[in-house]
């Protein structure tokens, strides 16, 4: 028995390390590059750590280029869109899974069809729409069109998560006189919280790293999001690698933070014992 667990842990940790290396190598390379001067970056023999360490990339991107402002803009858009999409998608997903109503199957599939039109052409009519209602060059305009890619994803993932929670709890609650709405919030939500949280984090990430729509909608530099700010550093055919990598590393921090902070909610345990008997 003990030997079995021993082997198991060896396998688990070896695979984990493999995954970590594969996932993190490029990220490590980004960080590595962000601390170097350009000359070292172009060294034909790549250096695995900066021989000459510098923070000039970070300094340039944060202070000279007003990156903090871009971060603010991205935060506003991402948080708003994520919040609204989460609420709207959750209730829709709940309805699709737990309730029956005319048009249920059709409308849920139609939502997913939104992904069939690729963004590289979709941006034109969306921009036409935005400018007709006078929201071009505004963050609100972005907030209006971002849900086109968050809502279909969120709705369907939540459908899957809601389907996997045990039904027993809701049934007994209803017998106790709980309404559907209450059950939706008080019972289904906590049970599916890991799924909801991971959906929220992914939606945030999608908005955070979105580039094309932002490029088209936003003109004024004060309103630019971080992806636009990064792309702005790619002038002509020579990129400012140092600041670019520094900016990119900075970009990843908010999502990392979100993830670490929400890890409490990503573990279930609240249902233990509730269904027994």
């Amino acid at each position: 028995m003990k030997r079995n667990t021993w082997i198991k842990w060896i396998i688990v940790y070896s695979v984990l390390i493999l995954f970590l290396v594969a996932a993190l190598f490029p990220v490590y390379w980004m960080a590595n590059t962000s601390f170097k001067f350009q000359k070292e970056i172009y060294n034909p023999a790549p250096t695995f750590w900066p021989h000459v360490f510098t923070l000039s990339g970070y300094k340039e991107v944060l202070f000279d280029k007003g990156f903090l402002n871009n971060i603010k803009n991205s935060l506003i858009v991402s948080c708003t869109v994520t919040l609204i999409s989460a609420v709207v998608s959750y209730i829709a997903a709940y309805a699709i899974v737990k309730l029956d109503f005319p048009g249920r199957k059709f409308s849920s599939k139609a939502v997913l069809y939104a992904y069939l039109l690729p963004r590289t052409v979709l941006y034109i009519p969306l921009y036409l729409f935005i400018s007709k209602i006078g929201l071009s060059d505004t963050l609100l305009g972005l907030i209006l069109i971002y849900p086109t890619f968050t809502i279909p994803y969120a709705t369907w993932m939540l459908i899957a998560y809601l389907k996997s929670i045990p039904e027993g709890l809701e049934e007994s609650a209803e017998i106790d006189g709980c309404s559907k709405l209450q059950s939706m919030v008080r019972i289904a939500l906590p049970l599916s919280l890991p799924g909801v949280m991971s959906t929220v984090i992914f939606m945030f990430t999608m908005c955070w790293s979105e580039y094309l729509y932002a490029l088209v909608v936003i003109q004024e530099s004060a309103k630019k999001t971080i992806t636009l700010a990064l792309s702005n550093m790619m002038i002509g055919d020579i990129f400012a690698w140092g600041p670019l990598m520094a900016g990119s590393i900075i970009c990843t921090l908010p999502v990392l933070l979100m993830y670490v902070l929400s890890s409490r909610y990503l573990v279930t345990g609240t249902t233990m014992g509730a269904v027994k008997g």
Partner: peptide
Amino acid sequence: LPWTIPTMV
């Protein structure tokens, strides 16, 4: 992390 880094970068 790989998912969180903007695709372009």
